[in-house]
């Protein structure tokens, strides 16, 4: 199992119990699988960072990873 810290920003907070959550995930859980677990609407997430980097959605999360989800921003 991998312990993963997840932070949901702004409008995405409604998908979680708290702004910052610590989840126990099966090993090799990908970013996309974590997103599916939250059930975000398609296209609602604009940026995902893992430990401050921008890996693809097939990236496998390691123990102690810190994941942050930011809403899509298509023009301000």
């Amino acid at each position: 199992m991998a312990k993963v810290k997840v932070k949901l920003h702004f409008v995405l907070r409604r998908y979680g119990q708290a702004e910052l959550e610590v989840l126990e995930l099966p090993d090799k859980t990908t970013v996309q699988q974590l997103m599916d677990q939250y059930g975000f609407a398609p296209g609602e997430v604009g940026v995902v960072t893992v430990n401050g980097k921008l890996p693809g959605r097939d990236h496998e999360l390691e123990d102690n990873s810190s994941v942050e989800f930011y809403p899509i921003f298509g023009g301000g």
Binding site: H9, F10, G46, V47, T49, L54, P71, F73, G76
Partner: peptide, 11 residues
């Protein structure tokens, strides 16, 4: 719109 700034920085 101010919410957009954090995501742009993270991205």
């Amino acid at each position: 719109t101010p919410a957009g700034l954090a995501g742009k920085n993270a991205g």
